Computed example of a mutant assay.
Amino acid sequence: MSSPHLLNQTNKPIPNKHQVGRFAPSPSGPLHFGSLVAALGSYLIAKSDAAKWLVRIEDIDPPREIAGASDTILRQLEAFGLHWDGDITYQSQHLERFEEILNQLKAQGLLYACHCTRKQIAEFSHSQSIKHGLYPNICANKNLAFDGTDADGKGEAVAWKLRHGLNQYSYHDAIQGHCQFDEALYREDFTVKRKDGLIAYQLAVVVDDIEQNIDHVVRGCDLLDSTPRQLRLYEVLGQTAPDYYHLPLAINQEGNKLSKQNHAPAIEAENASVLLCDALSFLGQNPDPEWVLETPTTIISYAIERFSLEKIPQKQQISYLPRSSD
């Protein structure tokens, strides 16, 4: 479950004082315990600094979205005492801005089109002994048309790739410590616009974080190796990257990440106090046993007062076994 490209971790650095954080779920289903850990962790880190905590719904992948999931997620957050600041924002409202950024990068010669299929990429990577999951920059010098048309006017779907930089995109994580990755990850040209025409996650999340003045990002360790790609985007956009906090992932008894894809059960409002205490324990915060008798709002208040970043385990994953319903 650990990041496939992570080479080295060292001690945690001292974090900065923050002003704006966020929780950014995708509406592909209701929140589960793993989602609660991410939401609670980001909330506590923001509020322990008296920072704003924003909620952004990342709804730019329609094939994965479930009708009504956005409203369900917001009701779950409220039921668990996680009250956001300001208005809810929806990523789908920012498509025009994403296209502006893409055109800006294209004009700078930083993008190119790629028509490769997943099978072609896998076969080429295997032949060149390139690490699995990394794009081997096959089309970097082909000068393919961005609309997918060839000299005969025939069209095919293309993805848009951002050319890699020359820097080292290691970083200091406030929980995981210094994170250094395989050089191949730093030299990968990654997707910023998909073949189906949808904006890629990496671009959308960075542009939105810049627009919302997010100065710290709290999320799960499954996104550890997305961070070097996002640092490259901050570089080409001329912006300062936020501080990063990658929380341990909750995994089940089979060693799989709790996720909507793995059918993790939704968190239920009637069990909010117990689940909040479980999530606090998961994050190393040692809630008092009697907190389960309190309201979610009271538990959150206690948790902010006693929050300690240093107590969050410096681990990429932790097994989670739900309490017995007996």
Score class of each variant (00 low, 15 high):
residue 165 G to N: 06
residue 191 T to N: 10
residue 205 V to E: 03
residue 162 L to C: 10
residue 155 G to V: 07
residue 179 C to H: 03
residue 150 D to P: 12
residue 131 K to L: 04
residue 170 S to I: 03
residue 180 Q to R: 13
residue 139 C to R: 06
residue 151 A to E: 15
residue 172 H to I: 01
residue 185 L to T: 00
residue 148 G to D: 05
residue 158 V to S: 07
residue 152 D to R: 14
residue 173 D to H: 05
residue 170 S to A: 15
residue 178 H to L: 12
residue 136 P to A: 03
residue 153 G to W: 13
residue 189 D to T: 02
residue 161 K to T: 03
residue 166 L to G: 07
residue 202 Q to R: 10
residue 153 G to P: 12
residue 199 I to S: 01
residue 192 V to P: 01
residue 146 F to G: 01
residue 196 D to N: 08
residue 155 G to N: 15
residue 171 Y to D: 08
residue 174 A to E: 10
residue 135 Y to R: 01
residue 129 S to G: 08
residue 181 F to S: 00
residue 174 A to S: 14
residue 183 E to W: 04
residue 136 P to T: 03
residue 174 A to G: 12
residue 166 L to F: 09
residue 186 Y to F: 08
residue 199 I to G: 00
residue 204 A to C: 11
residue 195 K to G: 01
residue 183 E to S: 06
residue 182 D to Q: 09
residue 175 I to E: 01
residue 153 G to D: 13
residue 205 V to N: 01
residue 160 W to G: 00
residue 184 A to W: 05
residue 151 A to H: 14
residue 183 E to N: 11
residue 134 L to I: 02
residue 203 L to F: 09
residue 145 A to P: 14
residue 183 E to I: 05
residue 152 D to Y: 13
residue 198 L to A: 06
residue 184 A to E: 15
residue 186 Y to R: 00
residue 142 K to N: 12
residue 147 D to Y: 13
residue 163 R to E: 07
residue 149 T to R: 15
residue 178 H to V: 05
residue 187 R to E: 03
residue 187 R to I: 00
residue 147 D to G: 11
residue 151 A to D: 14
residue 170 S to T: 07
residue 150 D to S: 07
residue 169 Y to Q: 08
residue 193 K to Y: 02
residue 165 G to E: 11
residue 147 D to R: 13
residue 183 E to A: 05
residue 150 D to H: 12
residue 173 D to W: 03
residue 170 S to W: 02
residue 191 T to G: 06
residue 137 N to D: 09
residue 141 N to W: 06
residue 132 H to V: 04
residue 204 A to I: 09
residue 162 L to H: 01
residue 176 Q to G: 08
residue 140 A to L: 14
residue 129 S to K: 15
residue 189 D to V: 05
residue 161 K to Q: 09
residue 195 K to H: 08
residue 163 R to Q: 10
residue 160 W to S: 00
residue 154 K to W: 08
residue 145 A to K: 15
residue 183 E to C: 02
